[in-house]
Design a protein around this nucleic acid. Structure first.
Length: 271
DNA sequence: AGTACGTCCTGATCGC
DNA sequence: TGCGATCAGGACGTAC
């Protein structure tokens, strides 16, 4: 499931593959429900002959700035992945959308589960939902995190999945961050003390930086076939496996319907 | 407003 | 062995 490090990896792959500078010569939308706005027809028309100038990221959203002044926003959903391949190369049947480029290559959006989404908008800021701070930017301070958690009764795990609290965390990196901070996923957000919030903020940054660095190394080592997903987590995601720190049995529970793994010894429910 | 839950999707895995 | 049932979850709509 693409979360911040995976989306950032995708961004850097597209930049290294020199997508910026290229123009779309034709666009094929294979699953209309993916296009959130405008209509599929206007989406295709609006992209025609447009050149990609820059590729940015906000949370889990990729932002492709076009020479028309509009922005193509891509969210990979749970199973989405992007690649650039020669137009002559046969496309996987799971490729839902194709963006032919002016150099005989093609940007392909593979998305088996169809949870990915696309937008073409004149104002990305207005189109994107309310997103919290970028966790790898200086704006993501302990104070900023504390302010978001203040007065909130939901489990800390649910809060961290909320993109308006911090942008870019998903199920996996939330578990990983809580494990690193030694905080139980069901702790009430507003019950965390200052020391715990400090540890949590540091753990989130540490997890994301470590994963991003791992992707950087893999891209360099495996170019031109860099991995789109790596095993970046340290806590086993299986009930009963041993905690790498204390060897206790890892517990698997469900929090808000999400599979959640933690160490009952390192992450006590009451403190 | 805050919290919780169902929904969209289909490949992979599970269990009989 | 085969096949139907279940699982996986990001973001959003709806409900309380």
């Amino acid at each position: 499931m693409p979360e911040l490090p995976e989306v950032e990896n995708a961004r850097r792959i597209l930049i290294r593959a020199e997508l910026p500078g290229r123009a779309f010569t034709s666009v094929r939308v294979g699953w209309g429900n993916s296009v959130r706005s405008p209509s599929v027809e206007d989406f295709v028309l609006g992209l025609h002959s447009r050149r990609v100038e820059e590729i940015d990221r906000r949370g889990k959203y990729l932002l492709l700035a076009l020479d028309s002044g509009e922005t193509l926003i891509i969210h990979l959903g749970m199973t989405g992945g992007l690649s650039i391949q020669p137009q002559t190369q046969a496309a996987d049947p799971m490729v839902r959308h194709s963006f032919a480029l002016d150099d005989r290559r093609e940007l392909r959006f593979r998305d088996p589960r169809k949870f990915g989404h696309l937008w073409l908008t004149p104002d990305a800021g207005q189109t994107l939902p309310d997103l919290g701070p970028e966790p790898l930017s200086p704006e993501f301070t302990t104070e900023a995190l504390a302010a978001k958690l203040a007065g909130r009764n939901a489990p800390i795990k649910a809060m961290l999945l909320e993109q308006s609290v911090v942008a870019g965390l998903g199920n996996l990196y939330v578990d990983e961050s809580l494990y690193g901070a030694g905080i139980h996923p069901l702790r009430t957000a507003q019950a965390l003390d200052n020391g715990e919030i400090v540890r949590l903020q540091e753990s989130i940054v540490g997890c994301l930086n470590a994963a991003t660095a791992q992707y950087d190394r893999a891209r360099d080592a495996e170019w031109p076939d860099p991995p789109s997903a790596l095993h970046t987590w340290t806590i086993p995601r299986k009930d009963g496996e041993s905690c790498p720190k204390c060897a206790a049995a890892i517990a698997g529970i469900r929090v808000r319907g999400r599979g959640t793994f933690f160490c009952p010894e390192c992450q006590k429910e009451s403190c």
